[in-house]
């Protein structure tokens, strides 16, 4: 479980997150949705401490993350996997080295144990025969998969995904969504996903938080998002023709 309490974050006096309180549940895919520029990435980065919040608290289960120093945060970060908007693979390392890096840094496994673990994770994201390739040689979908493999290599308890399927075709998007969903249930992870893709929302949105201009406007699940009576949310949800048709069908 990850809980944010009254988070405020501003850049140079401009408030980007305004008093956000929300709880993300374990073993579920929690979605943060909102328009481009609404503050999703900033919220995610504030949760993991890449941005220091101005005020408010972030709890990881029973631990108050915001009050921890570098050393204690490092202990929690070993349990965090994160998939960045652009993949953020290290350009100068191969796929295998990228996925192996956390193992190199934080475990004392032997070379063969590491190799097995890396191959297991790469197979888990259904990526074969790519071990020796560099990120520049991968397609967008492959980059996302490698990023997922790297994020789960240390068996994280918390998984953060910043728009895991942006820039992918609809089919690959569904594959990536389902992959994250499966992994979440399989390992009972607290997963938080940023997205503005309504497909993902209706597929895997077990808990959904709608952010608008830095505030939390609505929270619920895929079951009740189509019936919500929140004007901003409805504008967002029914922006696409497909969603409109889905509502008419109901």
């Amino acid at each position: 479980m990850i809980r944010a309490e009254h988070i405020v974050k501003s850049f140079d006096g401009r408030v980007v997150l305004d008093d956000i309180s929300v709880e993300f549940e374990t073993g579920k895919t929690n979605l943060i949705i909102g328009r481009s520029g609404s503050g999703k990435t900033v919220l995610l980065k504030s949760l993991v401490g890449l941005h220091e919040v101005d005020s408010g608290r972030v709890w990881y289960d029973q631990t108050d993350f915001t009050s921890l120093g570098f050393r204690d945060r490092k202990a929690i970060r070993k349990d965090i996997g994160m998939i960045f908007q652009g993949g953020a693979l290290l350009d100068s390392s191969t796929v295998e080295e990228n996925v192996r890096l956390p193992l190199d840094l934080f475990t004392n496994q032997s070379a063969s144990e590491k190799r097995d673990r890396v191959n297991f994770c790469l197979q888990r994201v259904r990526l074969n025969n790519a071990n020796g390739l560099y990120p520049a040689e991968l397609s967008g979908g492959m980059i996302k998969r490698v990023a997922i493999a790297r994020a789960i290599v240390l068996n994280p308890k918390y998984l953060f995904c910043d728009e895991p399927n942006s820039g992918l075709d609809p089919q690959t998007s569904v594959v990536i969504d389902n992959l994250i969903h499966e992994i979440t249930q399989e390992y009972h992870i607290t997963t938080i996903i940023n997205t503005h893709d309504m497909n993902s929302v209706l597929e895997i949105g077990e808990k959904i938080v709608y952010i608008h201009e830095g505030r939390k406007w609505w929270e619920g699940s895929k079951e009740n998002i189509l019936q919500a009576d929140n004007r901003e949310l409805n504008d967002f949800v029914f922006a696409s023709a497909m969603a409109k048709r889905a509502r008419q069908a109901q």
Partner: peptide, 20 residues
Amino acid sequence: SEIGTMRITEQIDALEIMGV
């Protein structure tokens, strides 16, 4: 340019998140 690229493509954030 190498480190700057790593910064803007969030590779540095990715390292930080791993606790590096």
